[in-house]
Design a protein around this nucleic acid. Structure first.
Length: 615
DNA sequence: TGGTAGTCAATATA
DNA sequence: TATATTGACTACCA
């Protein structure tokens, strides 16, 4: 596996090296495909480029309906009942901490905790995970912890079912369903603190994460139906992570696969894994004050640890509004100055880039497959009280209150450090250089993609040869382009944090941000371009080629061409592309309409040996 | 076997 | 420095 990665790296390196030596396109001089070497170098596919290969019928993207269906989700953020997020109801003058679940729910919990145990079992944010706890009458959206992100995919009883937050009078029906087959996630000390004993008068939701954690429901993988989620009091304590818990990071890059870790451990595995556990507080102990929780060494959460509250399963019939969830997460991160990298690693066990991508382009819940795990962890984290959330992140409240008061991750618990240290055993891991398309390559590929989202293998081969790229690279480009174009449905929206801030400030956000981001997103995206000045526009106009210097160095040709990829106002068409609509088979004439090549110097023929026709 | 989903992680950008 | 972008990899699936 590592060898393949190395091979790939080597391939890339070789390929790049090759490109550096011949960073131009060798073309048939008779074509208008310009080979340029001078300043303002540009290269473009020949006009008959696509004529050399058989037209490839454009197959609708597998997710053609994704973009459109995304707007047709059974429930979206636009749903009134989902639009209500806590910040909206809060004054902008409120300190950030006022967003804590603790403060929001403390009053509720004060009531809840004094209720009979049955009641305490049946609600809370975690309880929202269970469809058995539905009570639309009590739906309120005054705070995040009423979980506006979750709704049922099916309206089972005919009434709208947005999972409501815990209420003291929440019916207790079925909450104990199949208790024997269900494991809970709560640490024993937490559990006993609030369930086995009367809660401390000082307890609040914010100071005691237990009520939230203990209601995390996980679905037994041993065939328990989604609706039969329950909650066991005889759960095990939190597991102190073993090295294996972070196996993910002990693998070589690209050997990791979250899908292998998707399923929670079975009960047996839980029992086995409980051999090593964090010290628990007996039921006789005094309820742990918040500071004690925070002061404890930060757990290393794992996607494999079923005792990890962040791994709490969510019923199959539960629908999470990922869009709103991401807004919330983005807001939380910003609000508490939590770096994406920290959150991604410690909470999601993912990389920063992945988190960033997910937050900006969340897929609808019903479109997710194994990716649900990541969103589930997001949800489970955000469902925790503030103190717990920050404790998980190993962030002290006082640190959070500082603008940049992030405590550095413990080296031993630092994922990257851990991975790096473990990888040392396997020998030095060479840095994998990432191929960066030259401006010309990228523009050419994008131009082709605009016309053909799914070029044939032959066409890809032709493209690869003329762009001096590997076939796999070209294939990857189109694969990524298709995928990412399908995620382009949010290009006209502000960032999640902006959306949250907008709501938070009751519409005070500057609309200019919209256009700026839209422009950026559009220009960065595939198949969409907009007129107007921008840095990307310069590239498109061929006035600025960042790789010109490189090209000058690498290409000794005297040729000087200037390319001007003229892209008109095709937003409408491009939106169709973004939606995965079927496009007509590309024709050379159509390409020419969009690609204007200005020949400013004759081709000396030196690099024109390779004829497209040969392909 | 090819396409897709999910993701990493290098790199670019703000 | 934090975040966004993106080429590439792997597992899964039809």
């Amino acid at each position: 596996m590592e060898s393949s990665r190395t091979a790939a790296t080597s391939t890339n390196g070789t390929e790049k090296s090759r490109r550096r030596n011949t960073d131009y396109l060798q073309i048939d001089p008779s074509s208008t495909f310009i080979n340029n070497t001078g300043r303002g170098f540009a290269e473009e596919l020949p006009e008959n480029f696509l004529d050399t290969i058989s037209p490839h019928p454009i197959t609708p993207s597998a997710s053609t309906s994704s973009a459109t269906s995304a707007t047709e989700e059974p429930a979206t953020s636009s749903a009134p009942q989902l639009a209500s997020l806590a910040p909206m109801s809060m004054s902008s003058e409120q300190p950030s901490s006022s967003f804590s679940s603790a403060s929001l729910l403390s009053s509720s919990y004060e009531t809840i905790k004094n209720e009979p145990e049955d009641y305490r079992f049946s609600g809370s944010t975690a309880g929202l995970l269970s469809p058995l706890h539905v009570d639309s009458r009590r739906r309120e959206s005054h705070d995040f912890n009423t979980s506006p992100y979750i709704k049922e995919e099916e309206d089972l009883d005919g009434s709208h079912l947005l999972m409501g937050g815990i209420r003291p009078d929440t019916p207790t029906n079925d909450r104990s369903t199949d208790l024997g087959s269900i494991s809970s996630l709560l640490n024993e000390d937490h559990h006993t603190n609030t369930i086995g004993q009367s809660p401390s008068p000082r307890s609040t939701f914010g100071s005691d994460p237990t009520p939230m954690i203990q209601r995390q429901l996980i679905k037994n993988e041993d065939g328990v139906s989604p609706g039969s989620m329950g909650f066991s009091k005889n759960h095990q304590g939190y597991q102190k992570p073993r090295n294996g818990d972070r196996m993910e990071y002990e693998k070589a890059p690209y050997q990791r696969n979250s899908r292998k870790q998707k399923k929670p451990l079975g009960l047996l595995n839980q029992a086995l894994s409980s051999v090593i556990s964090t010290p628990t507080i007996s039921s006789s102990n005094i309820p742990t004050p918040p500071s004690a929780h925070i002061a404890q060494p930060r757990r290393i959460y794992s996607t494999q640890d079923s005792n990890d509250p962040l791994n709490a399963e969510i019923g199959d019939d539960i629908y999470i509004d990922t869009k709103d969830l991401c807004k919330r997460i983005a807001f939380e991160l910003k609000n508490h100055s939590i770096p994406q990298a920290i959150f991604a690693e410690r909470i999601l066990c993912r990389s920063q880039g992945t988190l960033s991508d997910l937050l900006r382009n969340p897929k609808p819940w019903n479109k997710l497959k194994s990716g649900r795990e990541t969103f589930r962890r997001m949800y489970n984290w955000v469902a925790q009280p503030l103190a717990t959330r920050l404790a998980i992140l190993d962030m002290k409240t006082e640190d959070v209150n500082r603008a940049s008061g992030m405590s550095p991750p413990t080296p031993a618990q630092n994922v990257r450090t851990h991975r790096r240290s473990t990888s040392d055993h396997d020998g030095p891991v060479s840095k994998r250089p990432r191929l960066v398309f030259t401006d010309i390559q990228k523009r050419t590929l994008q131009a082709i993609f605009k016309e053909t989202q799914r070029p044939s293998r032959e066409m890809q081969q032709t493209i690869a040869e003329h762009l001096r790229l590997d076939l796999s690279t070209v294939a990857n480009f189109f694969m990524n382009a298709r995928r990412r174009s399908r995620l382009g449905g949010n290009i006209d929206e502000p960032t999640p944090f902006q959306q949250m801030a907008e709501m938070y400030k009751e519409g005070a956000i500057a609309t200019s941000n919209h256009s700026a981001e839209q422009r950026e997103m559009i220009e960065r995206g595939f198949g969409v371009s907009i007129p107007g000045p921008s840095h990307s526009g310069e590239l498109l106009n061929g006035d600025s080629h960042e790789d010109d210097e490189e090209l000058d160095e690498l290409n000794d040709s005297e040729l000087a061409y200037e390319e001007d990829v003229e892209i008109g106002d095709e937003e409408e068409e491009d939106e169709e592309q973004a939606n995965g609509d079927i496009l007509p088979t590309p024709k050379v004439e159509e390409l020419e309409e969009k690609t204007v090549i200005k020949e400013e110097a004759p081709d000396d023929g030196e690099y024109g040996a390779t004829k497209l026709a040969a392909n």
